[in-house]
Simulated assay, not measured.
Amino acid sequence: MSVTLQALGLDESMADALRSLPDDVVPGRVSRVDKGLATVLTERGPVRATWSGGLLTAVANDPQAGPCTGDWAVLRFWSDDRITLESVLPRRTAIVRAEVGGSSRGQVLAANVDVIAIVVGLVPEPNIVRIERFLALAWESGARPVVVLTKSDLVSDADGLAEDVAMAAPGADVLVCSAQTGDGLEAVRALLDGNATVALLGSSGAGKSSLVNALAGVELLDVQEIREDGKGRHTSVRRELIVLPEGGVVIDTPGLRGIGLQESGEGLAAAFPDVTVLAASCRFKDCGHVTEPGCAVQAALEDGSLPYRRYDSWVKLQREAAYMARRSDARLRSEARKEWARDTKAYRRDFKSRPK
């Protein structure tokens, strides 16, 4: 099935980048990535492409340079029927989390996203602290975060729960819907207007696959029941870009257990604007917001205008982001030393081989 690039979510800025490409290459958008292979949607139809030599070199130097779901890519079709993914165009937005396992490197979950829908099931009751973590990740990406509360048909006080979530999500819309009854789906579908790209993030069992099926009007993805202990089962096993029949693009992602932040600065400030404003009002610029005199954050805690729960969440994420920043700086210094050592070794080898 072939589609236009506009139906794949092409915007004007990316269209300008594509116009500068040579005539012997074909643009497309990465739908999914496997080991060494990518499914790319083009106006010729979907194709499977392997990495080019230049891309392999780029990935060896920077793992984030590798293609991910949502990337706009440049393809080359060869006379022996091979198709290679030559390069990835600069990303307009990118959802990056810290790699699982404690690495200081980031993992790109999806790229060129307009809206990040943080999908949270109303059963069991939403975890506010986890939502705040997702919001920090989403704001950092450059895309617009929206919290989508699903399974409203299973609770009697969906609007009350939505108000609690909204208090922890300043600046982000909070939508309530049910994939089973269709209630609230029009507001979710409106996020896709103009062939926008919406990435779904959330824990397993939040209802992401059911939401995609409801938006598409057909059963595109498998769904599973929640376990008896209330925890979700993994339905999606990989990130995949899906073009919806009525317009718009959805990127479905597997349920995330770990949501590590990587040097989240602007994202954390945007997720906690209330605390950020208070912190800027402290008497001392380097205030630790614990026991310092003239601390506006502590004053807000004492008068009750800032909940302790939200303060604790902010402190934890601040410490995590600072830790990842230190680790990243250490890694960059180490890589720079290794590169210097390689260049020095190569120079000495070339110097010795020169004719006398």
Rank of each mutant, 00 (worst) to 15 (best):
I83T: 11
V148K: 02
S87N: 13
W139F: 02
V100S: 13
L306Q: 08
R349N: 15
D329T: 03
S87L: 06
L135C: 08
V40W: 06
R82Q: 13
A162C: 09
A321E: 07
P126G: 00
A330Y: 01
Q64G: 01
T150H: 09
Y311F: 12
C68R: 14
R189A: 15
A296F: 14
D193P: 10
E140K: 00
P90A: 08
D229I: 04
I83Q: 05
L75C: 07
P245W: 01
S104Y: 15
K231N: 03
S156Y: 03
A269W: 04
A168E: 00
P245M: 05
R19L: 14
S204C: 09
R92Y: 05
A199F: 11
S264F: 02
G171C: 08
L37N: 03
S204F: 05
I118T: 04
V243Y: 02
H234D: 01
T181D: 14
G45I: 00
D159M: 08
A280T: 04
N112V: 10
V59M: 02
F134V: 00
R342G: 02
S20P: 03
M14A: 12
Q107V: 08
G248R: 11
E99Y: 03
P273W: 13
L261C: 01
C287E: 06
G230R: 14
L18Q: 10
T181K: 14
V250R: 10
V25F: 11
R310V: 10
C295Y: 08
V25C: 08
G171Q: 12
G102F: 00
V129W: 01
R133M: 00
L261N: 01
D164T: 03
A296L: 15
R189I: 09
V147C: 12
V275L: 12
I116H: 02
R283C: 05
S236V: 09
G207L: 01
V120P: 03
H234K: 04
K285H: 15
